[in-house]
Simulated scan of single mutants.
Amino acid sequence: MTSADSTRPVRLAVVSAGLSEPSSTRLLADRLAEATRVALREEGVEAEAGVVELREVATQIAHNFVTGFADARLREAIEQVTEADGLIAVTPVFSASYSGLFKSFFDVLDKDALAGKPVLLGATGGTPRHSLVLEHAMRPLFAYLRAVAAPTAVYAATDDWAARDDDFSRRIARAGGELASLVAPHAAAGTSPTAEPDVVPFEQQLAALRVEE
């Protein structure tokens, strides 16, 4: 990666579906965001992270399903996510899957809103046995939305926060580095990760071929 042509900071949107305050879900989201910023900084790229706490717009999300209308507060949250260069999405585990609030937020987005957008996935739960939620639930969801998920997803069980070894921290650092690798080229080019490539009209391509002949 190179930052020589970087024109603006990378914009990260951090979506946390934690229900309590403070929450382990928000704590994991913050650590993933910081790991991404550190990895970008090492490449000379600055980053800004904005947090969307879904519990703060839960009522607005429910109203959107009933009325089909997003009020100003929900629109702001949606725009923060859709206009970001990269997304960090973290949910608590409920009934062996992502929470209903988490799913509901992504259900109100336009079906193409996350196409091509780099995303780092995270989840929290009481025990390690729920860690596969990242692969059997979250990754398929974002694949359906055509987002580009980082290879490493991070699950945090209760014991991980008190672990004496550095495996948990290494997983977070690796995941942040992967997201940084996905978003930095877009920042260097000054483009959105979902920007459409320039298309040369067929007539121009044909004319060029005739000149070469």
Results as ranks from 00 to 15, higher is better:
Leu120Arg: 00
Lys103Asp: 08
Phe102Met: 00
Val119Arg: 00
His136Glu: 04
Leu132Val: 12
Ala143Ile: 09
Ala137Lys: 08
Leu132Arg: 14
Met138His: 03
Met138Asn: 04
Ala115Glu: 15
Leu145Lys: 01
Asp110Phe: 12
Phe106Asp: 03
Thr91Asp: 06
Pro92Ala: 07
Thr127Ala: 15
Val148Lys: 11
Val119Ile: 06
Val119Asn: 01
Leu145Val: 09
Thr91Lys: 00
Ala89Arg: 00
Phe102Cys: 03
Ala96Pro: 12
Arg139Pro: 10
Leu120Pro: 02
Val108Ser: 04
Ser104His: 10
Lys111Ser: 14
Val148Ala: 14
Ser131Gly: 13
Thr91Ile: 05
Ser104Glu: 02
Phe102Ile: 04
Ala149His: 09
Leu120Lys: 04
Pro118Gln: 13
Leu121Trp: 07
Gly125Gln: 06
Leu121Ile: 07
Phe105Arg: 00
Thr124Cys: 15
Lys111Thr: 15
Phe105Ala: 04
Phe105Tyr: 04
Leu87Gln: 09
Ala150Cys: 10
Asp107Tyr: 09
His136Ile: 10
Val90Cys: 08
Leu121Ala: 04
Leu145Trp: 05
Asp110Val: 09
Gly86Tyr: 02
Lys103Arg: 09
Met138Ile: 05
Asp107Ile: 05
Phe142Gln: 10
Asp112Lys: 08
Gly100Gln: 07
Ser104Ile: 02
Gly122Asn: 13
Glu135Trp: 03
Ala113Asp: 06
Tyr144Glu: 12
Phe102Asp: 00
Ser97Arg: 10
Lys111Arg: 15
Thr127Asn: 13
Ala149Tyr: 03
Pro128His: 10
Gly100Cys: 03
Leu121Gly: 09
Ser95Phe: 12
Ala89Lys: 01
Ser99Thr: 11
Leu87Met: 02
